[in-house]
């Protein structure tokens, strides 16, 4: 087991991503952060809190993608989690999807489908804490905490204090 990011490093990555999001979108006026459960939702929450500190309050929501997964028939069924939208919805907004690990890209494909059910944003961007490569679809992240070259047999485990006692990203062989 190797540690990829410590708690402090996770914190720094979140702060840098927050700055990049504000810079790229020239403010937060038209912005909506949508976290993908479970850990992506907590990351979105943290980015939101930090942007609130350094700039202005930003709209946020939670996007459950279970019903849009293309691997449903390959796995046991998963419980559906709540999807929440900010009061202004996502129509015409700049939506930033937030997830913990970007891997095959299939989760994000499902998220794009799920977004399509809810409205038509002006743009959809992607922020992830870890990009571990091995994409199976033409999808890339706009904001990355850390790029980690991995072997396909390894797995990346993100721990967040909200769920797992401490902040830590580790690589499991």
């Amino acid at each position: 087991m190797a540690i990829l990011l410590s708690g402090t490093e996770i914190d720094r990555a979140i702060k840098r991503i927050s700055h990049e999001i504000i810079e790229h979108n020239q403010g937060v006026n038209n912005l909506v952060l949508m976290g993908i459960p479970t850990r992506g939702a907590f990351l979105a929450e943290r980015i939101c809190t930090f942007i609130n500190e350094i700039e202005a309050p930003v709209a946020k929501g939670v996007l459950d993608i279970t019903l849009h997964r293309d691997d449903l028939r390959l796995r046991p069924p998963k419980p559906i989690l709540p999807t929440t939208l900010p009061a202004g919805g996502i129509e015409g907004k700049d939506v930033v999807l937030v997830d913990d690990v970007l891997f095959s890209g299939r989760t994000i494909r499902a998220a794009l489908d799920a977004i399509g059910e809810l409205g038509r944003p002006r743009t959809v961007q992607l922020a992830v804490l870890i990009d571990r490569g091995h994409r199976q679809l033409p999808i890339r992240a706009d904001y990355v905490g850390k790029n980690v070259p991995t072997s396909i047999s390894e797995s990346v485990k993100v721990h967040l204090a909200e769920l797992d006692e401490e902040d830590l990203v580790e690589l499991l062989k």
Binding site: L72, R73, R75, P76
Partner: peptide
């Protein structure tokens, strides 16, 4: 959804 959403018995 719960009965058909995932893989059938033993296929998972």
């Amino acid at each position: 959804y719960e009965l058909l959403g995932g893989a059938a018995f033993g296929e998972a």
